[in-house]
Design a protein around this nucleic acid. Structure first.
Lengths: 191, 191
DNA sequence: ACGGTAACCCTAACGGTTAGGACTTCACAA
DNA sequence: TTGTGAAGTCCTAACCGTTAGGGTTACCGT
């Protein structure tokens, strides 16, 4: 009698999806991304290959399963900052938090996996770019525009550039500050 | 007796490469990128499939054949600007020229082709990113550093972001100015 | 003139991805 | 309660970009 809002069907689907993603990530971490085929993942997860692609658009998407959360945090930083902080300030804080989390135990292994494969790195870029498009909308709103201008999109891309650069920097936190200093200057110039 | 510096072998290789790229681009423009397979291109160009991949690293690379020139122009703008103009100024001028060229007769059809395919758009992003890495080195030098810092890389990425954004903007020239205003502000803040 | 090698060829395969079509299981209304 | 439609899954066979293996020809430098 606790939470039966979602039917069995929906629960089963979510469970299948999770099982596939977990199985795949585990195999990738253990044996290397390129050394594990989709057919193997499907077999290990005890589903058909077509089922894998019913849940994930590509092999790479198996790895970046839960990336939607990152996007939402950025959006929230821009839309939810009070009057005390400016949007760039709020973004800087949130970015520091996010980049800091990348240093965790499991995260390190995860990002090492990503770095090991060209395809995963490419997919990562595309992911940030998707997030940049969403962030541009939030920035436009924050700057009081009904629709996104070139400036908004440029600023959003600039901000999202933090992740690749921070990951490859010796001191990620310092990289965040370096880039956000530039962003703040550009943001001010746009006002 | 005019210019026999290069041997027959080298000339033939270049000719083959050119023939493949021309054939492929023609077919893509006529029938659509996704509707033309590599095997077809090879047959039409009268070469083996393996020969196609001996000259081009991927199907997408067939389309972006001569992109190296763009990169060199940007580098030259940063390294070759005199004392009269700043590097951002020189970049802005060069970008205006380059973006202007995209509006030409054949260029329009070319970019429409690129826009028609997800894979080509993705490849385009990767291409700009490659150029950004090279540009970062030039920027670092211009700013008097022996090696590229996070700031240099961020600025380079920001500049290269002009192309995708200008192409999708209603007024590409205005987009260049908008973005370069931001870049100039960031550049100044970094000094 | 000749040995080495660069450019090219053919065939067969690999791995991600998708189409086609069938089967089972759940949701929901009659 | 039962019937019906849709959703989730399955299997098979293929498509397409890409590569490995191994061979042939044509050019270049000595």
């Amino acid at each position: 009698m606790t939470e039966q809002q979602v039917g069995r069907r929906e629960r089963k689907k979510a469970a299948t999806r999770q099982a596939i993603a977990d199985t795949a990530l585990g195999m990738f971490l253990e044996r290397g991304y390129d050394n594990v085929g989709i057919r193997e993942v499907a077999q290990a997860a005890d589903v058909a290959v077509t089922t894998v692609f019913a849940h994930f658009a590509s092999k790479e998407a198996l790895v970046f399963d839960r990336d939607q959360g990152l996007q939402e945090r950025l959006i929230k930083a821009v839309t939810g900052h009070g009057a005390r902080w400016s949007a760039p300030q709020a973004l800087r804080d949130e970015l520091h938090l996010m980049v800091g989390e990348f240093a965790g135990e499991q995260s390190t292994a995860f990002w090492r996996l990503v770095d090991s494969s060209t395809e995963l790195r490419d997919y990562e870029s595309k992911m940030w770019q998707r997030h940049a498009d969403a962030l541009a909308v939030a920035i436009a709103t924050d700057r009081g525009r009904p629709t996104t201008t070139t400036t908004d999109k440029a600023l959003a891309r600039f901000v999202l550039g933090v992740f690749p650069l921070a990951r490859e920097a010796d001191d990620p936190a310092a990289a965040v500050d370096e880039i956000m200093d530039l962003v703040s200057a550009a943001w001010a110039a746009a006002a």
